[in-house]
Design a protein around this nucleic acid. Structure first.
Length: 215
DNA sequence: ATCCCGAGGG
DNA sequence: CCCTCTGGAT
């Protein structure tokens, strides 16, 4: 089956099974979204949403955040994972945002990646959500699910997956594909013991056919 | 106990 | 490439 046809089948399945509502990161502007996405690594959106109101009340702009003591930022974010790294990243990100871009969040993925704490995945989220660019953020879920179903082939890195998928996913479907692949990975196609018995994609899934059905 | 919606550094 | 950073959810 061609990749595009496979993708169409997957998207059709998600269309009829995926729930509409889902917890998402709260934010009011691009700066707040960068902060939230940096905090979200290995951490639930729910917890990030508990942290950001107080944090952003204290440091509402890049200019305030750039002058912050890392230790004080740490105190606000201590309940998310990697608070030490993230506190340094947030302050450094704000400083660089001012130094390079006059405090304005850039829309280009390469420009975004010059900011501390902003890697490929985070940059793609900002480009997609804030600027409506056709950017596919490949996190651990998208990476795993795409490989299992066969939407990617021999992709060793998230970037390789991103490049492969972007070749055949229509621009307008990128956000939807991204969101649904994540949800599928989080609730059904989980890392350890995927719940294939609850999955409607087994018929076309490479992983199921090889590892479960033994074909 | 074990895993997780990353990024940076060696 | 592999390691580390880390708390919280299950």
């Amino acid at each position: 089956m061609r990749k595009k046809e496979l993708f169409d089948r997957v998207i059709a399945y998600f269309e009829e099974t995926m729930p509409i509502a889902e917890t998402e990161l709260d934010y009011q502007n691009p700066f707040e979204l960068i902060v939230a996405v940096i905090l979200s690594a290995q951490c639930t959106d729910k917890r990030v949403n508990q942290i950001t109101p107080d944090l952003l009340k204290r440091f509402p702009t890049p200019y305030k955040m750039a002058e912050a003591e890392v230790a004080e930022v740490f105190d606000y974010i201590r309940s998310c994972s990697y608070p030490n790294n993230k506190a340094k990243h947030l302050v450094g990100m704000a400083q660089k945002l001012i130094e390079l871009y006059d405090g304005e969040v850039p829309s280009d993925v390469d420009d975004l990646q010059k900011l501390p704490g902003v890697g490929r995945k985070t940059a793609n989220v900002i480009a997609s959500v804030v600027y409506n660019k056709p950017a596919l953020a490949v996190d651990t879920h998208v990476f795993r699910v795409a490989a299992r179903i066969g939407l990617s082939t021999n992709a060793k890195t998230p970037l390789a997956t991103e490049i492969q998928l972007m070749k055949y996913i229509p621009e307008e479907l990128v956000p939807k594909a991204h969101h649904w692949l994540i949800l599928h990975g989080r609730y059904t196609c989980v890392a350890r013991k995927p719940k294939c018995e609850k999955c409607g994609l087994t018929e076309i899934c490479k992983y199921y056919q090889k590892e479960v059905a033994g074909k």
